[in-house]
């Protein structure tokens, strides 16, 4: 049961990636500029913010920033988990 769920999830993921790869624009053409002019024109109107970068980071693309903060949080969790204080086992004594 768990194996079939894993295979299904793998198939869905691979199908998604293949569709995304087929629909991708040509190599070397970063032409996702549909929103650029909107950001430049409207960041002072929508957000009352002079800094367009801050407006994109924390309003238009806020979910990405949330992911970034979550990555930092999980990095700290990993460091704490790796460097936690171990109980010292005396030499020659088996640790049960």
């Amino acid at each position: 049961m768990r194996k079939s769920i894993a295979i299904l999830a793998w198939v869905v993921l691979v199908a998604f990636l293949i569709v995304a790869a087929v629909q991708m624009r040509d190599f070397g053409e970063p032409k996702y500029d549909d929103m650029d002019q909107h950001f430049l024109d409207n960041s002072q109107i929508d957000d009352e913010t002079n800094n367009v970068v801050a407006a994109v980071l924390f309003d238009y693309r806020g979910i990405d920033t949330l992911g970034e903060a979550t990555i930092l949080f999980s990095a700290v969790s990993g460091v704490i988990a790796v460097l936690r204080k171990m109980r010292k086992v005396k030499r020659g004594v088996e640790s049960g």
């Binding site: 957000d47 309003d59 806020g62 700290v76």
Partner: peptide
């Protein structure tokens, strides 16, 4: 005195990044 939530979110993210990087350095 402008920006609305952008300013407040900057402060919140700043708190998080200060604490996270300091905690990594201190733990190491």
């Amino acid at each position: 005195n402008t920006g609305g939530t952008v300013t407040l979110m900057n402060i919140a993210v700043g708190m998080e990044v200060i604490a996270a990087l300091s905690l990594i350095l201190w733990m190491m």
